[in-house]
């Protein structure tokens, strides 16, 4: 399966910039999972947790709202605040 370039940004820093196989995003209309070749989509985030999977490893990122832009091979998340949750 094709992987996607995931970028999570805040105004201050790049929180995550990695290639992932899947990412689960908390949208206002409900959580949704993005895999490769998703239809282009822009939607609003609600505060919650992003779960990104790369190489079978899961990363959790807490966000406090923002926006997600999905294209077939990239996901850009412009978050209000975001932090990688340490495990």
């Amino acid at each position: 399966m094709s992987d996607i370039a995931l970028r999570i940004l805040t105004r201050q820093k790049v929180v995550l910039n990695a290639r992932v196989t899947s990412v689960i995003v908390p949208g206002t209309e409900g959580d949704f999972e993005v895999l490769g070749n998703h239809t282009p989509l822009v939607t609003v985030l609600r505060p919650g947790r992003i779960v990104a999977t790369c190489n079978g490893e899961r990363k959790n990122i807490e966000v406090a709202g923002g926006f997600v832009m999905v294209t077939p091979d990239r996901v850009d998340i412009l978050a209000e605040r975001a932090d990688l949750t340490p495990r």
Binding site: P40, V42, T43, M69, T71, P72, R74
Partner: peptide, 14 residues
């Protein structure tokens, strides 16, 4: 990525 985006729920609300 020069494809039209879909907006959810709608362009205006986004």
């Amino acid at each position: 990525l020069d494809l039209p985006f879909g907006y959810e729920p709608s362009p205006e609300s986004v």
